Simulated scan of single mutants.
Amino acid sequence: MSKRFFAEDSYWNTKIENNPKIISRSDHFIKLLYEADAASGFHINLNAWTIPVYEVTKDTPRVNVAKRMKNHTGEGSAFYKNSEAYIQQQADHPQGHGPGFGMNVPIPEHAVPDKESDSHMALVDYDQGIAWDMWAAERRSDGTWWSCTGMTYDLYGSGVFDPKDYAIHNGESIHLYGPSRASGVPIIAGLIMHDEITAGKIEHKLACACSCVGLLEHVYPPAIWTDGAYPNGIPEGTLIQLDPELDLEAFGLTREEKIIAKALQEYGAVMTDYAGGVTLYGEGLWSNKTKNWDGLLDEEGLRKIPFSNYRCIESGVTVEKGMVPMPHKLLFKTYYDQTGLPEHLDLKEENE
C-alpha cells in the first residue's frame, strides 16, 4: 500500500462517520457547484494547476530559498502591498516564509514547480518525517531559488496548522505568513497520488476547489483562512461527501475512477482553494520519468457523477475571518458580480 501523509488519526486520514450531520446550507452549496462548473461534476487537475511532490533524503543537495513576495510580478506583489503597513511595523515579519523555512531546503536537481502561475512545489522526506512546500517557487537564471511562500512541517503530524501560530490580520492573505494554499492547509493534503491509484485504494480526504468559495468564512479544522470572495459561498474547509449509499457501478466508471469515487464516499473532499471550475487535485508528474497519468486516469472521468449526488457534512467550526476582496483580478470579479457594488477604480487599475 502507498504511503499516506500525516498521522493515522489526522483529520485528513479520518473516515466520515456513519450518518453524519448534514449542514443546513448543503443544498445551497451543491447548487453553487453547478453554478461554478457547467460540466456538473468534478474535474481532476492532473497536468496543470496542481502540486508536484518530490521525494528527498538526507543526501539531497540543500539550497537556501530566498523570499520572493515583494518582487513577485503577479498577485504576490499585491498581497505584499496589502500587508505592507504590518510588515513595516514588525521587524521580523515572515513576508511569506513560515518558521524554519528558507535555509537548507532539499531540492533535487530535476525538480520543477507547477508550470502555471501558482508554481506550487512540495518536498517530502519519508525517513526523517519532514515536508516542505512552496507557492510561486522559481529556480532563477543563476541557479538559485526563491518563493513567495514556504512552510516546513511534520510529515506525520496532524496536517492541520494552528491558527494561533499566525499573527495575521483580517483582510490579509495567509500567504504572507507561510502557508501555500489560501485556506492555510498543507499543499500535499488531499492530493491524489499516482501510487495510490496503482495500488487500488485512497485512504484519506481529497482536496478540491471551486470559484464560489465563501467571503470571510472558513471551517476549522482544517482551514485556518480563506481567499473566498463569494458572499454566502462555500467556506474553505467545507467537507463534501459523495452519497455513501450510491451504487458506483451505475455510472460506467473505470477502475481508477471508482477508487477516487470510493474515497469521496468514505473520506470526502475538502474545499481548499479558489479555482476557475470545480476540481480535485492529482499530483503533478511532468518531470517524473517513471510515472505519468496517461492511460491511467482521465481528468474528465469523475464528471460522470453529477453534483446532485453529493452533500456537505458538518465537520468543524465556522470562523468569520479571511482575506477581503483586494487586488486580485479573478476574486474581484467574483465579489463585484455577486454584490453589484461598483469596482473601486484604483483597485481595478491594479489588475490591468
Rank of each mutant, 00 (worst) to 15 (best):
5 F>T: 00
17 E>W: 10
18 N>I: 14
19 N>W: 04
27 D>P: 12
28 H>M: 15
29 F>D: 00
31 K>H: 15
33 L>V: 07
44 I>V: 14
45 N>W: 15
47 N>G: 13
49 W>V: 09
50 T>E: 01
53 V>S: 00
53 V>I: 10
61 P>R: 14
61 P>A: 10
63 V>M: 15
63 V>Q: 09
66 A>C: 11
67 K>R: 04
70 K>A: 05
70 K>E: 03
72 H>W: 09
72 H>T: 03
72 H>D: 12
74 G>M: 08
76 G>F: 02
76 G>Q: 06
78 A>M: 15
78 A>Q: 08
82 N>M: 13
82 N>S: 04
86 Y>R: 14
87 I>Q: 00
92 D>Q: 11
106 P>N: 07
107 I>V: 15
108 P>M: 09
109 E>Y: 07
109 E>C: 14
110 H>R: 06
110 H>T: 15
115 K>M: 15
115 K>A: 11
119 S>H: 14
123 L>R: 09
123 L>S: 01
125 D>P: 07
126 Y>A: 08
129 G>I: 12
132 W>I: 03
135 W>D: 00
141 S>N: 04
143 G>E: 05
144 T>L: 02
145 W>T: 14
152 T>V: 13
153 Y>C: 09
159 G>W: 03
159 G>V: 04
161 F>V: 14
161 F>M: 10
163 P>A: 04
169 H>T: 13
173 S>Q: 03
182 A>T: 15
184 G>V: 15
189 A>K: 00
190 G>W: 12
190 G>T: 06
192 I>L: 01
196 E>L: 02
198 T>Y: 07
198 T>D: 09
199 A>I: 05
199 A>Q: 05
204 H>S: 04
208 C>E: 07
209 A>R: 00
210 C>E: 02
215 L>N: 03
220 Y>E: 08
220 Y>M: 08
222 P>M: 04
222 P>W: 05
224 I>S: 00
229 A>R: 09
229 A>C: 07
231 P>D: 11
232 N>G: 05
233 G>K: 01
235 P>V: 15
240 I>F: 00
243 D>H: 10
243 D>I: 08
244 P>D: 09
248 L>E: 07
249 E>R: 14
250 A>D: 08
253 L>M: 13
254 T>M: 00
257 E>S: 10
264 L>C: 09
266 E>T: 13
269 A>Q: 01
270 V>E: 08
275 A>E: 06
279 T>D: 01
279 T>W: 03
279 T>V: 08
284 G>E: 02
284 G>Q: 04
286 W>Q: 09
288 N>D: 07
290 T>S: 11
292 N>T: 06
292 N>L: 08
294 D>T: 14
296 L>W: 06
296 L>D: 01
298 D>F: 05
299 E>G: 01
306 P>D: 04
312 C>S: 08
312 C>Y: 01
314 E>G: 03
315 S>F: 02
315 S>R: 07
315 S>Q: 06
317 V>F: 10
319 V>Y: 01
320 E>K: 04
321 K>F: 12
322 G>Y: 00
323 M>I: 10
328 H>I: 13
328 H>Y: 11
330 L>G: 06
333 K>E: 02
333 K>I: 02
345 L>R: 13
346 D>H: 07
347 L>W: 05
349 E>Y: 03
350 E>A: 05
